[in-house]
Amino acid sequence: MNSEDTRAFDADGIAGAVVASTVTFPKPPQLRAARRAKQSVIKFVILFVTLAFLFVPLLAMLIFTLRHPLSGRWSAAPWIAIFTGNGESLGADLTVLWQGVGTSLALSAVTVVIMLLLLVPTMVIVHIRSKALERAIEWVATLPLTIPAIVLVVGLGPIYRWLSADVLSTNPIWLCFAYVILVMPFAFRAIAVGLNSIDVKTLVEASRSLGASWPKVFFKVIIPNLWQSILSASFISIAVVLGEYTVASLLGRMNLQVALYQLGQSNSQISTAMSLLALLFGVVLLVALDLISDAMRKSKEGK
């Protein structure tokens, strides 16, 4: 055997050893079953701990609303007072509560409209024209996350004092301007995910080459592809507005959380029950978002 045959034999031997070392033999059924059982136990423990962390406080709140803290007597009177609108028997004036609910719902609607009018056209135009400017807008939009709400109030206080005295009024609906700032980071991220998931430039160029005007491109081409992101941004914004307390309280305006705080001074059970209903409403929003997203995805797949 000459030297060339020896080198060839060695190379084949090394290659065979490498292939043999990388081959994975199937595990016995007993080992696979044991591994699946172990993974199932770990998943169950993680799920149980997570659900307990989330639902034990909610269960404690529910028990608190049904069991009187002093006498220990069980009663559904706080829930009956909420659904009948009469809390006089429990020493609570629910007028403030319904005023706060109406204000927060109106603020949610106005905030979402202003947020969408500001963010969606701006982000679409910047996404098409300039990536550098898009990064700058992202920095500005996410800046409120790094600024505490109480610091925002310190800066917004003089502005609202001037607006209330000389331009607008003290109506709580004007909190929408401050709330747009608070929801902007969450809404920006939701819309940015939608823009990055589609080829906006190609859609725009194809539409323009077919003779579509810019308004038609925006409303009939881009917006239908962003519906899921727009819904996500809207629902997240509604959840943030319904849970906001600091800005409204420090600026002396009434919303749902301020009303719950004031109601808690006279009857904490009714306040806690209403807080549970607000949390349930947030869960309903998230479930509705998931169902709408699935329906939209299935309709696109069907087409």
Score class of each variant (00 low, 15 high):
194 G>R: 05
202 T>P: 01
234 S>Q: 06
200 V>D: 06
222 I>A: 10
198 I>D: 05
185 P>D: 05
202 T>A: 14
172 P>L: 02
204 V>R: 09
207 S>M: 07
197 S>Y: 02
214 W>P: 08
194 G>W: 02
181 I>L: 13
227 W>P: 04
201 K>R: 15
198 I>P: 07
215 P>L: 06
220 K>S: 15
220 K>I: 03
228 Q>D: 14
176 C>M: 13
215 P>V: 05
182 L>P: 04
160 Y>R: 06
190 A>V: 04
216 K>R: 15
177 F>H: 04
175 L>F: 03
211 G>D: 03
161 R>H: 12
208 R>A: 04
232 S>I: 07
210 L>I: 00
169 S>M: 03
221 V>R: 09
221 V>E: 14
227 W>Q: 15
220 K>E: 14
200 V>C: 08
169 S>I: 00
160 Y>D: 08
208 R>S: 04
182 L>R: 06
179 Y>H: 08
178 A>M: 04
193 V>N: 13
160 Y>E: 07
205 E>V: 10
232 S>H: 06
160 Y>V: 06
216 K>H: 14
193 V>G: 11
220 K>Y: 13
186 F>C: 07
180 V>A: 11
163 L>E: 03
218 F>D: 12
226 L>D: 11
191 I>N: 07
218 F>N: 11
193 V>K: 12
159 I>P: 05
173 I>C: 07
198 I>Y: 02
220 K>N: 15
234 S>F: 07
193 V>D: 14
199 D>K: 01
168 L>T: 00
215 P>K: 07
187 A>W: 05
183 V>P: 03
163 L>Q: 05
233 A>H: 02
233 A>W: 00
166 D>G: 00
208 R>V: 01
